[in-house]
Design a protein around this nucleic acid. Structure first.
Lengths: 328, 328
DNA sequence: AAAAATATGTCAATCGTTTGACATAAAATT
DNA sequence: AATTTTATGTCAAACGATTGACATATTTTT
């Protein structure tokens, strides 16, 4: 089907070894031969078979991306930035949407191992340390503690929620609710709740926490939000993600609660998508592009130098308050 | 690093050939041996090296997905559905965001070829037929004519816009504008404009077409929309995608134009995302899940049976009107 | 007890490419 | 003219798994 090395050799009128040498720039080669070989390659539309090369120990130039879902705009933008950055380094990406599914994540890990990927960027949160460790592959993680040997990149979650709460306080809120994901221990996102509690203490308002799970359907979330708005009458809500914040806005509108007059809302993530299509929402923007760049940089370093000790375990990138109408 | 077949053989106390036979269920095997081998495999966390297998002509179980971008919720949902469906068949997915970039798409095609993918699902629109044909790989296409030998899956674009325009007419609009992508010849999406023009004739209103390119930034789109609303005063706008429709709604709000009283708007695509976070928008929903399922089914058929003639070239799936507040 | 079926092992070729060893020849440098 | 450098070729062994051919046991069936 596709042209192989020996076809190129025949067309270029030289030996297979010479062609291989040209491709790998190995040993003595005249410009003339190089030109002949490259011409033949072009003519035959030849691409060295990565599969065969990787048996020789060459890199597959493949990275596995494990994230919960790309239908969440935050992950979509992060994955796309990662993909773009890796592409520039000639790497390709196997996309693994693990959902909330332990088994799927596990099966994907197996598949990635069998496919000889060069490394993994992990953003899903279903499996524990063990399963990742026994792969023996270079791994970097987003927002998730996997093991002492895996570097973590995240935004400054603590500072982000501090900024958010502070913004609500400055805007005159007194009854500020925290609406966010349930927490697991040891992950960087735990800092969000911590920041809220600290700020409550500092600013002397009492803490109110409403929990919505990442996996809750929007209907469930709407129910919880409805309940909160109707029964508790908060005048400010800090959400740990923008989508939940949008649901709050929609529910408030339905209930005839005026935003920002009677209720102020601030989100978290600050994707381009939300900024474009819900530009009214105030939010804390994660530096998605920087996160992607750093994840890729760390992974490629580990790939090319697997034995080097980690200089640093946690990489925390700054966030930005984007002030808009919902906290005006 | 990772365990190989010979390690399993050693641990199971049998020959490499026997292990391979167990894995491929080939020839005579006692249950006892099978158990021993499977136990050893488990113990060593062994995964057959796909790379080595594929040199034997086995499938890589890898499919390339070429789409413009996953930050567009429509593509995100489509890609995620495709990925999920393929995962159930034990296939993995290489994600290729081609953007608006001919060179990137071309380079990705080369990479996919070198990576020995078993097939390609193409949804990007930058390259012509030739580049896809010379790959000699099974291909199916979404919404895009690639070559006479590549099956096309799309929704019923014509019927979709007919429904949309009809909905606006029924809601009492007289000055209905068409706001959509620029067109290229021969693609299924051309039907959208055709449907609008036909409906204009049938319902006796004059056609007004405003063009926005898929690649236009939201600022550019906003400018064009602003201009249309201020200068032309349409009372109805049919958009060829939901995101553009949302921009129209935002711009109308800014200008103090009441929706749906003074202006009715209908979109196209009907992603879960829009239905959840912009539930006020009326839209034509593409059957994303069915499209994904069909694309996968067609591709897998071609992969397992590459020489079979196509029974059918165009597969058109029905759309659905989702009526909401913006056309009430 | 002979024949057939079952179970496992050894060996080698294959997939496409890389790479080292070795040979040979032409060109460039002493 | 002798030596070194450059250029290319031939050959073969990897990489990890598959598979056919063939050999040799052990069971099972007649």
């Amino acid at each position: 089907m596709a042209a192989k090395l020996s076809d190129v050799a025949k067309k270029a009128g030289c030996s297979a070894t010479t062609v291989s040498r040209v491709i790998n720039n190995h040993g003595y080669l005249s410009q003339k031969t190089k030109d002949k070989v490259f011409a033949a390659m072009r003519e035959l539309n030849y691409r060295p078979n990565s599969i065969a090369r990787s048996l020789q120990g060459k890199k597959m130039k493949l990275v596995g991306l494990i994230f919960p879902e790309i239908t969440n705009p935050f992950f979509a933008e992060l994955v796309q930035d990662i993909e773009t950055t890796l592409f520039q380094q000639n790497y390709k990406v196997i996309l693994c949407n693990a959902g909330q599914n332990k088994e799927k994540e596990r099966e994907y890990l197996r598949m990635l191992q069998a496919n000889q990927v060069d490394g993994i960027i992990a953003g899903a949160h279903n499996l524990g340390i063990n399963e990742y460790q026994q792969l023996g592959l270079p791994i970097v993680s987003f927002d998730r503690k996997l093991s002492d040997n895996v570097p973590i990149v995240s935004c400054d979650n603590y500072q982000g929620i501090k900024l958010a709460v502070h913004d609500l306080v400055q805007a005159g809120c007194h009854k500020i609710y925290f609406l966010g994901n349930e927490h697991r221990k040891g992950n960087p996102t735990d800092e969000r709740l911590a920041a809220y509690l600290d700020e409550a203490k500092e600013c002397h308002f009492s803490a109110h926490i409403r929990s919505v799970a990442f996996s809750d359907s929007s209907n469930i979330k709407n129910m919880k939000i409805h309940d909160m708005l109707v029964n508790d009458h908060p005048d400010g809500v800090v959400c740990t993600d923008d989508l939940t914040a949008v649901l709050v806005l929609q529910e408030a509108k339905k209930l005839g609660i005026k935003v920002p007059k009677e209720l102020k809302v601030i989100g978290f993530d600050g994707t381009k998508q939300i900024q474009t299509y819900h530009s009214e929402l105030s939010t804390i923007a994660q530096p998605i592009h920087d996160i992607a760049t750093l994840l890729v940089k760390l992974l490629l370093t580990r790939i090319s130098n697997p034995d080097e000790k980690l200089r640093q375990k946690n990489y925390i990138l700054p966030v930005k308050l984007i002030k808009s109408e919902t906290t005006a």
